[in-house]
């Protein structure tokens, strides 16, 4: 039982970690949390469900191809990731970039505004009830996990390694660091701010789209699902320290395990409230996060 709880808690934490990494990446550019990120996750999930269903019907009625399901899943993933990236870039270019200089608080409120608008639009288009992808999943016997979850785990590990390499080794990563460290100086040294910010937003959209697809296959999607993950990842980000990617991931996984144990021994509401209370206490005592070197200005 203990092993099972740890195992599923870990995989629960991976979901939270994907969203938290998205939050942390955007933090580097906007210097605050973008709360509409999770709604873009919901959006990508919806796109995946609909495009996968549509393509499967299209292929099976017009063409005689083998591996219809795998092709439709791959094309669905591609479409969903692409649409998520395009939507993110549009939001970044036309909403966030023009108002970036006005202060972080205004950015937070704006992101809330975007989140409310996106949720309402999605509930008008797709209705409020839960939609599940039609893919039938088979768990791996003996392990009790779906292949999807192992894919997501390997994706998360790869993206962490790659991101870390990019940030430490390449010029791109160094310019991100420069932007974070001193924005005005970075502009003065002709660092291409717009390009970098688009790239970072694009990467965050890619990560978020993967978690959205996985969510739509595993549990199903409803328009307000983002709020739940938003709160969890927000906790993990603040606990882990926003600029520290590893800290965020560790905090997310710890949070996942904690929630799993809490759900088992108490009830979901109690465990969620406990998480929020821990977050509140932490905000009072150590607002810069647990795994963090002190750079951030409070």
């Amino acid at each position: 039982m203990l092993f099972d709880l740890l195992k599923y808690g870990f995989f629960n934490g991976i979901y939270i970690a994907l969203v938290s990494v998205g939050f942390a990446l955007i933090f580097n550019i906007l210097r605050t949390i973008d709360f509409s990120l999770t709604d873009r996750m919901t959006f990508s999930g919806y796109v995946f469900i609909i495009s996968e269903k549509y393509i499967k019907g299209l292929i099976s009625s017009h063409l005689q191809l083998p591996f219809v399901e795998i092709i439709s899943i791959l094309v669905g993933c591609l479409l969903s990731i692409l649409s998520c990236i395009i939507l993110t870039l549009i939001i970044e270019k036309y909403i966030f970039t023009p108002i970036k200089e006005k202060g972080t608080s205004i950015l937070i409120i704006t992101s809330f505004g975007i989140s409310v608008i996106m949720q309402s639009l999605m509930s008008i288009i797709f209705t409020n009830s839960t939609i599940v992808s039609s893919i039938q999943e088979y768990s791996i016997p003996g392990i009790g996990l779906y292949p999807r979850e192992i894919l997501v785990l390997s994706f998360a590990v790869t993206i962490m390694i790659v991101l870390n390499l990019i940030i430490k080794k390449t010029l791109f990563g160094k310019s991100i660091n420069a932007l974070v460290f001193n924005y005005e100086l970075a502009i003065f040294h002709k660092i291409p701010v717009k390009k970098i910010s688009s790239l970072v937003f694009g990467i965050s959209a890619f990560i978020i789209a993967i978690s959205g697809i996985s969510l739509s296959v595993g549990f199903g999607i409803y328009p307000n699902i983002g709020n739940k993950y938003m709160i969890y990842s927000f906790c993990a980000c603040l606990i882990g320290g926003l600029k520290n990617l590893y800290g965020t991931v560790i905090a997310s996984i710890l949070l996942g395990v904690f929630l799993q144990f809490g759900d088992c021994f108490t009830s979901p509401i109690v465990s969620e409230s406990l998480t929020l209370i821990i977050l509140l206490v932490l905000l009072y005592i150590k607002p810069e996060g647990l795994f963090f070197e002190k750079i951030r200005v409070i």
């Binding site: 039982m1 099972d4 709880l5 599923y8 629960n12 839960t130 549990f219 409803y222 699902i225 739940k228 799993q260 144990f261 759900d263 088992c264 009830s267 979901p268 509401i269």
Partner: peptide
């Protein structure tokens, strides 16, 4: 007790096992 729109049932199933 099951919440409305509860997503994750893995801990409940583990407990029931």
């Amino acid at each position: 007790e099951v919440l409305r729109n509860q997503l994750n049932f893995s801990s409940i199933v583990t407990k029931l096992k």
